[in-house]
Write a protein that binds this DNA or RNA. Structure first.
Lengths: 189, 189, 189, 189
DNA sequence: GATGAATGAGTGTTCATTCAT
DNA sequence: GATGAATGAACACTCATTCAT
């Protein structure tokens, strides 16, 4: 019995939520996918909402940690932005389902959605700081850092998903090259 | 000539769908908002799905027409991209609710969502052609046009929504300046 | 179509609630008994709780109105108490199911139960006033009117139910004679 | 010798059942209150039903034993009735929660409820015999003893609970005086 | 054209009970 | 003896859709 029930449920939930979205996904779906009785989910998670929130928190943590752990202080802002683009592309490729969830469920006025946007903002603020660094040291054009950070995130996210949800191959190198050209060409003086 | 029932329902549906999203919105909500009996909606639209699809089609039409009608053949690619950025920022500001719907409901495997992505692609292909023009005439860097177009759309969409759903003022000019810098700085040689 | 759906549901609810109690009764039970779809109940009543409350309110109203409408001002307190005993015995006989509900569901700390006790108190206060009259005019012993009224109600209620839920015949005249003896023998000087 | 698990569970069950009633009380509640794992309850009691039944049996036993142990053969029927009234008032004051359970759960057609009514009847039969004695020796009016016994029980029970569940102080002496007046005034010639 | 009462399949959640350890 | 993770049947409530008027 390798897998704990909790992680079985976790995996099943990612699958189902990304496939159907929060509202259309049912606890029965998730239970069936996890090969677990419905009550078992409720033994481990208080509610559908909580399960979902937990999922997204873990995912965002993974993304931010993945990026932050690789950022080294003495990189130039340019190098840092490159790193983030590359990491984000890889992350979207690897956790496509999670990313679909994020893009589907972040826009709205429910508590859950506000919570998600807060997490997104927290991730974007990592980018924002780098943009500010670059502006401060004169290597970047003088743009509003907040706009730049959401634009950078959005450009990568939508471009990635656009490919991943189409039929095309997810050519990470090609996408990286294009985004690097767009993002850095626009930022660097 | 008062408001036809159909347009009453249409307006109410926009309000309710953007407020609650497709799944959480109920036909009762819409009927109440439109001051119309629930059966009346079914007299005019076959189903909730159809009503919604109709709505989004109209909205996408509005966006694409708005942009295409202003594009003039003898503009340079650079001017065209600027125009699109500006138009898109204005559109998102004006139809915030519709844009939320679009971002919420475009990612998934249901028919409706496939349909939405098809519409999105159709809009993006307008951008794509301009990018190709720019590459062809040597004014743009040589990037994959498809990636560039989805990145351009995504950068604008996410940045706009990020502001519109936060508390900040939607400073269209500032956002435009930033996006122009990012996008054109990166595209233009 | 003689019976309105509402009254069908009402009747079915009385049956089912008195048979099973509030918690064990299910909306499916009630729907089935009323030959109505479950949704129909919710079309007419907001919730199980509300349906139940409505039921009890109607019943208590019936009991109090039945009694109050027959009380005439120039009766002596003794005659009034007799009348109440007789009416209550008749009411319990006629609406046995309702009375079971009342006795089952009035004791506890939930809102619904507090509400029920308030209704009971309101009924008992009718008795209380008569006892006070009797004491004032010297025809009754000097007892605490509140205790007397709840005791009078309780003696009748438990005695009635005791018979009704046993197998015995509900001999209203006999029961009336006994209660009259007990109650008036104890009250009258 | 610490508390045995069984008695821990017993105590917890009394608390929880009286607070929430049979249906709303959960085995988790009881386990938590008893500081015991849920499975442990099932080790000691076959089911929720059985645990509850056991509880009520103990309680009724306590009431009947309390009364019977104090009844002395050469008391007059009048003295015996007085004693019972006094004892019952004290018991209700001391075991309010149990009495709520009794009144809540005794009216219905489930096995458990039939069982409870049987216990109640067994208790009432103690009263009944005394009434018959009193009638036989000519000191009581000639009433149906069964009616009188349930009326006597009911008068005390409802009056007690009415006070105990309201806000008022439970003035045992005052209540006793009133019930004695009512009951004996009505019974005694 | 328009209505709204009626429907019933479907959903999140609860909880008594079991059983492997 | 004791545990608590796991179960799954059951339940209150929702809502898109239908249809008789």
């Amino acid at each position: 019995m390798r897998k704990s029930k909790t992680s079985l449920i976790f995996q099943a939930a990612i699958d189902v939520f990304s496939e159907k979205g929060f509202d259309k996904a049912t606890m029965d779906d998730i239970a069936a996918r996890a090969n677990v009785a419905k009550g078992t989910i409720y033994y481990h998670f208080k509610s559908k909402e909580e399960l979902f929130l937990f999922l997204v928190e873990e995912g965002m943590e993974l993304l931010r940690e993945g990026v932050e752990s690789k950022l080294i202080d003495d990189m130039t802002p340019r190098e840092k932005i490159e790193l983030i683009l590359r990491e984000q592309i890889a992350f979207f490729g690897q956790y496509r389902d999670f990313c679909v969830i994020l893009l589907r469920e972040s826009w709205g006025a429910e508590d859950r959605q506000l919570e998600f946007r807060k997490m997104l903002r927290s991730y974007m603020s990592v980018i924002e700081k780098i943009v500010q660094e670059g502006i401060a040291d004169g290597s970047f054009h003088d743009v509003t850092a907040e706009n730049a950070s959401s634009a950078l995130f959005g450009m990568g996210a939508i471009a990635s998903l656009h490919i991943l949800l189409g039929k095309g191959e997810y050519n990470e190198e090609g996408l990286f090259a294009d985004l690097k050209q767009l993002a850095l060409g626009g930022l660097l003086k």
